[in-house]
Design a protein around this nucleic acid. Structure first.
Lengths: 343, 343
DNA sequence: AAATTTCGTGCAATCGATTGCATCTGTGCT
DNA sequence: AGCACAGATGCAATCGATTGCACGAAATTT
């Protein structure tokens, strides 16, 4: 049997016949402790395998050095890459990261946000679930002045820092690109438009059509949850129109891919007969045939930025707050799925 | 200005002229408190927006309801899906999950494991970095009898629960499959064979060759880190042999894909001229052309299993330990990259 | 030599919730 | 009436680290 209980500063204090305060100060390199004492204490701490009890420290200092992240799904490439970016910066700065997934359920999101609060995270970074339509659960953070950052799917009405991409511009440029390639009737598959992201992309899409004097027909716009199934449903529905489209701008790459698969199975050639642009630049988009034109969000960079911002807020809590909305650059990646020679 | 400081059980106690112990017991539904008092207390707690301070509770109860996860990279599909599985089960059971990535660096892994310990996680689930060759940093967990589970990349010599797939069988069946398809000279691209996973896959590969009376030539085995670049390097090297292979079993799908890209660029037809089998069933593997034959690990299930196991250990700490190694089933998914008609 | 700093350390309270052990008030039983 | 006992609540210690304040000794200033 090994030591049943952990080594505490009191154990060290007792053995060295000093007080616990001295040990605490020595380990924290407090200048008030003499060099000799510090060395003695640190040596013994090492020898005994002392590991500070972060919990006790957290309780006393009212700081956990922990950043909470709530995302819809951990294993979606955009989110996991974002998280990776946060984690990188956080780790460097001595912060831990705790993560939960809402599974796109409002109820779970509420539970998680509560739990993050009870765990006294120093700050919270979050992207809303598809169902989120009230924001009361974030009030405890804003009330207590705990840094809160929204990214991607944000709550426009809440005072907080926000990190987004210009979804309107994305929608616009994707659509314009299709128009430039000579596609005539361009449809759009959107996600739930309660979310700013999908809403803005759609507006960008509409705006591009308008600018080019193309009609924005309701039939050509479908909203769903953008799963693979949804993509297939949508393309079937679109092809069944009396006047079907010859291109689609999809709200994500997953649905774009499932459309491609279906179109191929129907002998419809891409990009010759039909153009597709997706969104997100999933890893597969580059390597499928045809490769998928898409919009790339700088996920890792967004994560890094979010972490920098929130750590800065945490460590300068005294300062008066100014909330910014940071718009990160996106890139339209043109690949095969939309690269027909102009008709 | 809102309340500057949070509501504690003492605030509730004072207002209701009861003691803090009573409040604590009431909120925890302790049967010793009368129904009437409980209701009064709970009502006021709700009204004041009381949120328990988990930190204080954690300190007192010596339990954090937190599970630590350390993986090489968060944004690799296998790992993020595994994490998602853990998180699902953990959440259901009232546990939080804290996650860090080692970036495949031993040094970072050590720091993280230390930090997880200092944060007093109730249990740790981990998959080793590519560099990990000593295991001292896990001793503090085993010494203090804190549940520890390894998955995928494990430390064979440590006493702990382990969750793996049968990598030997995987290597064997992948190779046998290529042989069955009539490929004659089968190469293998492996990861660092200090890791059990890569080592076992290679042994399985060798064993299949042997069983089929095919020579296992050193030239045909390459070890690297299996990145995209590595895959390309490897295939170039293999094709440059005086007697090049006509098939490769790759240690992951990423390198398999980069081989495919290179082979296509050289006009080598897959699967007619060359067969490829990968590993992991990345999302892209199904949708690239040709689609990649691969081995599917049940990532989500492995995560769920790991969580169940560790929570069980945590909650039955008194019981004598028996360490098990759980081997999860894999599936050889046969797709185009290896499906030639037998020569 | 007296007065004032400086230095190194200890005391004790604190963070917020939990819990073993009293304590007190009724109720039931003989 | 007397006693046991159950029910409801409070007291105070505890978890481990931190920190404002105090104190004694040594060093410096006047």
């Amino acid at each position: 049997m090994e030591e049943k209980t952990s080594v505490t500063i009191h154990d060290i204090a007792r053995k060295l016949r000093v007080s616990a305060s001295t040990v605490s100060r020595a380990l924290n390199d407090n200048p008030r402790i003499s060099k000799a004492t510090k060395e003695k204490i640190k040596a013994l701490a090492l020898k005994l395998g002392y590991q500070p009890n972060t919990i006790a420290s957290n309780l006393r200092t009212q700081k956990t050095h922990t950043i909470g992240i709530v995302v819809p799904l951990i294993n979606r490439h955009f989110f996991s890459t974002f998280i990776s970016g946060v984690e990188d910066v956080a780790f460097e700065a001595g912060y831990n990261v705790i993560i939960s997934q809402s599974k796109d359920l409002l109820l779970k999101e509420k539970q998680i946000v509560n739990s993050m609060f009870s765990n006294r995270v120093d700050g919270l970074i979050t992207s809303l679930s598809m169902q989120t339509n009230d924001f009361d659960h974030f009030k405890m953070f804003t009330n207590k002045n705990i840094p809160l950052i929204f990214f991607d799917r944000i709550a426009p009405q809440l005072e907080a820092n926000k990190i987004i991409v210009d979804d309107f511009a994305c929608g616009y440029s994707a659509t314009q690109h299709l128009i430039d390639k000579g596609y005539q009737r361009i449809a759009h598959l959107a996600g739930p438009t309660v979310l700013n992201t999908y809403h803005d992309r759609m507006e960008g899409y509409k705006s591009a059509l308008k600018k080019n004097h193309l009609p924005a027909e309701d039939d050509l716009i479908i909203c769903n949850r953008l799963t693979r199934m949804d993509g297939q449903e949508a393309i079937k529905q679109l092809l069944a129109l009396k006047n079907p489209p010859d291109a689609v701008f999809c709200g994500n790459d997953t649905s774009a891919l499932s459309m491609i698969v279906y179109l191929k199975s129907q002998g419809i050639r891409i990009p010759e007969d039909f153009g597709i642009v997706g969104f997100s630049n999933e890893p597969f988009s580059e390597v499928v045939t045809p490769s998928i034109s898409t919009l790339k969000q700088p996920a890792q960079e967004m994560g890094r930025k979010a972490a920098e911002l929130i750590i800065n807020e945490i460590e300068n809590k005294a300062l008066p707050r100014t909330y910014q909305t940071i718009t990160m650059p996106t890139e339209l990646i043109i690949r095969e799925s939309s690269s027909r020679k102009k008709a």
